[in-house]
């Protein structure tokens, strides 16, 4: 099972609402609705590694805006 704790911590650090994150994730091709995304980040539910990486990418792109380069690790190599 993929560890979602770093994603949860990143969202809180970046002060992103679930809806803000969901829109970015959706734009990247994410397939879950906002409610399912919120549950997944709370450790309730699963998704594919590819979809997990869309969430990671959405967070990493906010980090790009803040001058950092992809600090979160991806599930797929």
């Amino acid at each position: 099972m993929i560890d979602v704790a770093p994603l949860r911590a990143a969202r809180q650090f970046l002060e992103l609402t679930i809806m803000e994150l969901w829109i970015d994730y959706f734009a990247l091709g994410g397939i879950q609705d906002a409610k399912t995304l919120a549950a997944y980040l709370n450790g309730d539910g699963e998704t594919s590694p590819g979809d997990h990486d869309a969430i990671v990418q959405a967070l990493n792109e906010v980090f790009i805006d803040r001058g950092l380069n992809h600090p979160l690790d991806y599930a797929m190599t």
């Binding site: 590694p49 590819g50 990486d53 992809h70 797929m76």
Partner: peptide, 21 residues
Amino acid sequence: SPDEAFAILRRRSQDENRKLR
């Protein structure tokens, strides 16, 4: 696969530190 295609895009995003879109 679609997931592998996404991985190619996001690896370039990492390498070049640019937005995937």
